[in-house]
Structures are given as C-alpha cells and as structure tokens.
C-alpha cells in the first residue's frame, strides 16, 4: 500500500464527487458549497503533486473567489423563487450524453500514453517536502533555477507575462468596479419596480462591490 496513492485516491474522489454534486444540485448556495469542497480537495491534489505554492494559492484565491460567488448567490437569490431553477429534462439528458462521451474520449487519451502511467520509485520517494516558493518567485522575476543549462534546456523566465498579467489584473479590477458602479449611479434607482431592492440595499451593494474589487489586488503579487 502506497500512502501517496491512498491520499491521491481520497482527494481525487472528493474533488470529482463534489464536482459532480455541483452539476446535479439546483440550489445555488449548495452548489457554491460543493464547489468550495471540490476546489479545496484539488488543492490537496496539488500538494500531493509537489506544487505546494500553487496549492496554497488555490486555497487563498480560488476558494476565496468562490466565497464571493457564494455571497452573490445569497444576495441575488435570497428570494425563494430563485433558489431552485431547473433546466428542462431533455437539455440535461443531452448535456449528460455529450459529457459522458467527451469524458470517455479524454480518459482513453490520458491512459493511452505509456509514459504517463505511474512510475514506481519516483512516486515513492516523497519524504522531503518540495521547495517551490523561491524557484517560482525567481521564475516570475525572469530567472529559472530548474532545468540544466548544459543540455540546451535553459528555460525562459516569466518576467514579461508577470508584468502583463499584473497590468491586466489592474485594468480588469478598474473595469469591474466601473461596470458595477455605473449602473447603480447613472441607472434608475428611483424607477425600481416594486419589489426591487431599496436605496440602502443598493448602497450596501456598492460597498460590497468596491470591497471585492479592492480585495483582489492581493492576488496579484505572490508574496515570496
């Protein structure tokens, strides 16, 4: 019995099972809850694969981002009529059939490559936890410490993509804040139909969106 395989099976079962649960439930808050569990189990898989920095990043950003989804789910669907929304039966059947066919295709492709199957000694020597934070940070600064420069495998750094994605993130956040804000200020709050949210609710929501927009820059620079 290999511990690594046991833990992998456990986390993989949780990740896949709750991903399926996301598909099959129609209550939006439960969906978000199952999604959180699935994403957390996936970060466990990352830890098992030796990518501990990415695993922690996944926990912090992805799961935190899903938390925001959850909150929006609650905010937008607190009325009972939105909590359950089902598609028609034929749509579900068609989607399920197509999904199953695609899954069979992908799985057979994954199993079909011989070098992708499990290799014994490598997977067993896992006692030493990996050190990935510094190499990743150096990679983002443009220096690669993995790979052997002598056999022509001197790998490229990621300084330019890192800068691009930082600017991109900033633009996206400004844009998202603008998108969410214009509608509420220039839009017709006074012309809300009866049953729409009231003034303070709208203000609360502006505050929420601003807060969310301000939260995400923390995702931008990995603190290494």
């Amino acid at each position: 019995m290999i511990w690594h395989s046991v833990l992998f099976t456990l986390f993989a079962a949780i990740a896949c099972g709750f991903a399926m649960a996301v598909v099959f439930t129609s209550n939006v808050v439960r969906m978000a809850f199952y999604l959180v569990i699935s994403l957390s189990a996936t970060s466990g898989l990352f830890f098992l694969a030796g990518a501990d920095f990415v695993g922690a990043m996944q926990l912090m950003i992805y799961v935190g981002g899903t938390l925001v989804l959850l909150i929006f789910g609650v905010m937008l669907t607190a009325q009972q009529r939105f909590v359950q929304m089902r598609p028609s039966r034929s749509e579900v059947l068609l989607a399920g059939l197509l999904g199953a066919a695609l899954l069979v295709l992908l799985a057979s492709a994954a199993v079909g490559v011989p070098t992708w199957r499990g290799s014994g000694p490598k997977a067993a020597a896992l006692d030493e936890p990996p050190l990935t934070a510094t190499p990743i940070a150096l990679g983002l600064l443009g220096f690669r410490v993995d790979g052997d420069p002598d056999d022509g495998q001197n790998r490229a750094g990621y300084l330019l993509p890192f800068e691009i994605i930082s600017v991109h993130l900033l633009v996206v956040l400004v844009g998202a804040a603008y998108l969410a804000r214009t509608r509420l200020t220039a839009g017709s709050l006074a012309q809300q139909p009866p049953g729409g949210f009231e003034q303070d609710a709208a203000e609360d929501r502006i505050a929420e969106v601003e807060a969310i927009a301000a939260d995400s820059p923390g995702t931008e620079g990995p603190p290494t």
Partner: peptide, 27 residues
C-alpha cells in the same frame, strides 16, 4: 491504493472536473 500514481491519474481527475464544468455551464 497499491500502485504508484502517475500523470494519467491526474489527467483523469482533470477530465472529470472539466466535463463537470462543461455540463454545469450547459445545463
């Protein structure tokens, strides 16, 4: 649980998550 995990195992998990996402988006 008795054999070492390989890339294929992870790819299958990835495929299941991917399909779940696609079906979720569609339905």
């Amino acid at each position: 649980v008795t054999e070492p995990v390989g890339v294929a195992h992870y790819l299958i998990v990835g495929a299941v998550l991917f399909i779940a996402g696609i079906v979720c988006m569609a339905t």
